[in-house]
Amino acid sequence: PDPCYDENGNPRRCIPDFVNSAFGKEVRTSSTCGKTPGRYCLVTEKGDERNRNCHTCDASNPKKYHPPAYLTDLNNPHNLTCWQSENYIQYPQNVTITLSLGKKFEVTYVSLQFCSPRPESMAIFKSMDYGKSWVPFQYYSAQCRKMYTKPSKATITKQNEQEAICTDSHTDMHPLSGGLIAFSTLDGRPSAHDFDNSPVLQDWVTATDIKVTFSRLHTFGDENEDDSEQARDSYFYAVSDLQVGGRCKCNGHASRCVKDRDGNLVCECKHNTSGPECDRCKPFHYDRPWQRATAREANECVACNCNLHARRCRFNMELYKLSGRKSGGVCLNCRHNTAGRHCHYCKEGYYRDLSKTISHRKACKACDCHPVGAAGKTCNQTTGQCPCKDGVTGITCNRCAKGYQQSRSPIAPCIKIP
């Protein structure tokens, strides 16, 4: 059964499955340890006692490297794999990780599980144009005002639902490992309960790429002391699992996304829609404007009615409104000698052959009015009767009427018999 149609075959809203769209995808990072083998140290605490265990990060050694792929590989809590940045990239320098989702997704949450202490400050951004421009999604900082010129935990109103807020939650240094940051895109947004009817929030949760910028490291404050080298080798960003929970964006017109011929992820559009996000009507289905499907209304696209005489049509808003928002399609290039917005009557010089349906290829026949006996070439649409000159008769005006005889004049071909 197709989720996009009910058991009677009627269209209904359908949405792809909820997935972790980051899983298995490549993540670009601005810094990864081990390009040249180097030391890093892990700090553990027991009461007031602090210990450092140092290791080597070496990109050329599978047992010692921490590549970006570990961000989105299978997250095995019993065998954590962690991506790790180089050491001590401290504010104002930052480390950025960027994930391309491959197409538009409606993001529900972004979560990061850390192997290091969580950052003192970090920001999550999204792009809607495949990385051309970026929009802030959320800030985390113990110093919101100072780091991001944002108040901490500002209230979100209907007027600023598309604004990123800054919060100081999840910014403490502990736990030193395993800390989680999870950002829910709709949390605290007033229109979240009515998401279906909120284009603002639908736009807000839509993303093609996610970028996380780690802006400031937490430290114990020993990075500038005399033997600071070991201390600085303990400060880096390390994440074991980056998740981006959401659904492939298909505007309610597809139940799944597939790879197209070029390997791009696209929606498997139903309801006569097309485009990577099912965001327009497919050709020839312009009888009403495209709309996103809702829980109550599938809003499928409807084919133009051209009685099989045209392959193309266009939408006309005026006609649509005049029709009470029923039909706005206008057929283009009616063939088989038909005309009208639905190719539903015969064009000038032709008349209906009522023995055939209007959708028949030969539904319109040429008038065939006599070149001399008829006063014009256009005949009656339904009877085929041509306009005859005085004294002339016949459906094509090719004979003199009773009481008349043919003359030599093409102007008055039939004259009364004296």
Binding site: P371, V372, G373, G394, K402, R408, P410, I411, P413
Partner: peptide, 24 residues
């Protein structure tokens, strides 16, 4: 009684050359 169809060869086109159908 059916009247014969108009006979195109009988018409005098002297003053109506521009009206004369191609096949006449």
């Amino acid at each position: 009684e059916v009247m014969p169809t108009l006979d195109m060869t009988l018409f005098d086109w002297t003053d109506y050359e521009d009206m004369k159908p191609v096949d006449a």
